[in-house]
């Protein structure tokens, strides 16, 4: 670091043939590098701080519950008969399950739709329609989540019960399916409704990133496919998708992050039932939604446990992001070979 092998001391004027960078440039680069490193470090520090303080705040509950905090499905904040045998219990499994199911439903619905819209915009739509579609999707992103939640609880939930009932009747008697699409809850508030609402909320993010990703596919690759007599769709499968895999995983991950963290819309539409059931038409509860629901009435251990849920959610999102990174790296290494 301190060795200045090729650089003359700043005081001696550089000769004409000197190829080393001038002093000003070096300083500029150094300052820039330092700013970048500092910004990166700051982000990491903030992340670490959040993790440390939340863990600290929730420590009392985490220590008491131990591993059962994440393995037990029983979350009983207020023991009905005082200090009876039940006692307050803090097991987050049902809530983790709720978050997982809602996010899964949201992804299953949103990913194909978003990719379809992105493909339409980048590959198929005539120029005029392109701008219009982009504007509409961006408008969707501008709707506040509480509005989505209210719309879900006031309009979607009551209207969708007959649809759930119809699906349930359709698959009645078919093993597995008739459990998954079981008897719907009468309010219409449940995993499925929450998943639907969250799906609509994450479509704009996934679409806009997928659009960027598709736009980076080289024309040369598309032409190669078309010159072999590929139709548009065959060209998309052969040339666009292989190039976009990594980027699409990234897009889905951002959507998933948003879905897992979505709080108010889920709180309004999921139905607030702490249970684990395979029936997606039933009511449930998720990690962020229970935090807002119970925060106001919580104190002591209960509050610590709610903060603990935040820690669990945070850890889960980080874990999933790391996993996605590994998947992408593997896939890209395999596809691109040694080149790049």
């Amino acid at each position: 670091m301190t060795k200045t092998l090729n650089r003359p001391p700043a005081s001696t004027p550089a000769p004409q043939t000197d190829l080393t960078t001038s002093g000003g440039g070096v300083w500029g680069d150094r300052v820039f590098a330092a700013v970048c490193v500092a910004a990166g470090a700051l982000v990491l520090a903030i992340l670490a701080l959040i993790l440390v303080t939340t863990t600290q705040q929730s420590w009392a509950a985490l220590r008491d519950s131990g591993l059962s905090f994440v393995t037990s499905p029983r979350w009983v904040a207020n023991d009905p008969d005082g200090d009876g045998p039940l006692g307050p219990r803090f097991g987050a499994l049902a809530l983790i399950y709720g978050t997982a199911i809602v996010s899964l439903i949201a992804l299953v619905i949103a990913v194909p739709i978003s990719i379809g819209i992105a493909l339409f915009i980048t590959e198929l739509a005539p120029r005029r329609l392109r701008g219009l579609s982009v504007t509409v999707i961006d408008l969707l992103a501008a709707v506040p989540s509480v509005v989505f939640g209210l719309w879900g609880i006031l309009v979607v939930a009551p209207a969708i019960v007959p649809v759930y009932q119809w699906i349930h009747d359709l698959v009645d008697g078919i093993p597995v399916l008739d459990t998954v699409f079981g008897v719907p809850v009468s309010s219409g508030r449940g995993y499925m409704t929450a998943g639907l609402i969250v799906a609509i909320m994450i479509i704009p993010i996934i679409t806009s990133i997928a659009r960027e990703v598709f736009a980076t596919v080289p024309e040369a690759d598309k032409h190669a496919a078309l010159a072999l007599g590929a139709t548009r769709w065959e060209m998309i499968r052969g040339a666009v998708f292989p190039h976009s895999f990594g980027g699409l995983v990234g897009a889905v991950m951002l959507g998933l992050g948003r879905a897992m963290g979505e709080t108010i819309a889920v709180a309004l539409t999921i139905g607030a039932a702490i249970q684990i059931t395979g029936n997606v038409f039933q009511a449930g509860e998720a990690l962020p939604s229970i935090i807002v629901r119970q925060w106001g009435e919580s104190a002591g251990q209960h509050r610590a446990a709610l903060i603990g849920l935040g820690v669990v959610l945070f850890a889960l999102t980080i874990l999933i992001n790391l996993l996605a990174r590994i998947v992408v790296r593997h896939a890209e290494a395999r596809m691109k070979g040694a080149a790049r």
Binding site: A220, D221, H223, P242
Partner: peptide
């Protein structure tokens, strides 16, 4: 194009 194929200037294999 299925009858009349094309090879381009820059090699462009698919990934």
């Amino acid at each position: 194009r299925r009858h009349i194929g094309m090879v381009f200037q820059k090699p462009n294999p698919f990934p």
